[in-house]
Design a binder for these strands. Structure first.
Length: 221
DNA sequence: GCCAACGTTGGC
DNA sequence: GCCAACGTTGGC
């Protein structure tokens, strides 16, 4: 079975009540924080923003956490059976909530974080929608959550499958430059979550953001 | 390895 | 329910 280690996020031992409160708050934050052009209409209709594209962060370089290596780059995904892995270890409510909105067939960028050269490496597809992240119940797992119960699991994961590498690696530094430019000019990356919500390990992208970044693969850096 | 940004916790 | 302290993320 593929065991992928994803970005964790904060608090491994939040209490049940805290989790519930946090949950709600995050739900709010997510909605109001969904900075997209469509957000306005979303607010009018009262419908939550619906995203169809995502960005998933993972660490391509070795780093030990409680005796377990967190390394899981896109090459590691490629070498899994079926080039498929479960995106476990997400321990942040916003990130979790986004994962629960993912639908089979949707595409996501595989982003390399916490490494020499951070950036977008390739494209993956959601091949299984959110289900219980078993690692929350494993005391030996770095992402063990002692206060999550099997009756009412707190954390979820999806399965992703490798689709393709981008024709070239798109470095964070380049995206950042474009983001800054677009903030001034109103281009497609002006609100990109990678910069407006830097620590979020599972992020939504608008169609425009996704397409624009894909278009960079054939542009000379 | 440093440290800014930010999510969570817990005292009050 | 505020907010200071704390822990983590992740770029640099």
């Amino acid at each position: 079975m593929p065991r992928a280690k994803r970005k964790r996020a904060s608090s491994e031992n939040s209490t049940e009540p805290a989790a519930k409160a946090g949950d709600k708050e995050v739900e709010k934050t997510v909605t109001s924080g969904a900075i997209t052009p469509k957000n306005k209409s979303a607010q009018k209709t009262g419908e939550p923003e619906e995203y169809a594209h995502w960005l998933l962060k993972s660490e391509p370089e070795s780093r030990m956490d409680k005796g377990i290596d967190m390394k899981f780059g896109i090459e590691d995904l490629k070498s899994q059976p079926n080039q498929t892995a479960c995106w476990d270890g997400v321990r942040n409510y916003q990130a979790r909530n986004f994962m629960r909105k993912m639908k089979t067939g949707q595409k996501a960028f595989f982003y390399h974080s916490n490494c020499k050269e951070p950036g977008v490496a390739g494209v993956v597809e959601i091949v299984k929608e959110a289900y219980t992240d078993h690692t929350q119940f494993d005391p030996k797992n770095p992402h063990y959550d002692s206060s999550s119960s099997r009756d009412n699991p707190r954390w979820f994961m999806v399965d992703v499958q490798f689709v393709r590498m981008l024709n070239r690696f798109i470095p964070l530094a380049e995206l950042k430059q474009i983001h800054l430019k677009h903030k001034a000019s109103g281009g497609p990356l002006k609100n990109m979550a990678l910069f407006t919500r830097a620590r979020l390990s599972v992020q939504p992208l608008t169609q425009e953001e996704f397409d624009f970044i894909v278009s960079l693969e054939d542009v000379k850096a």
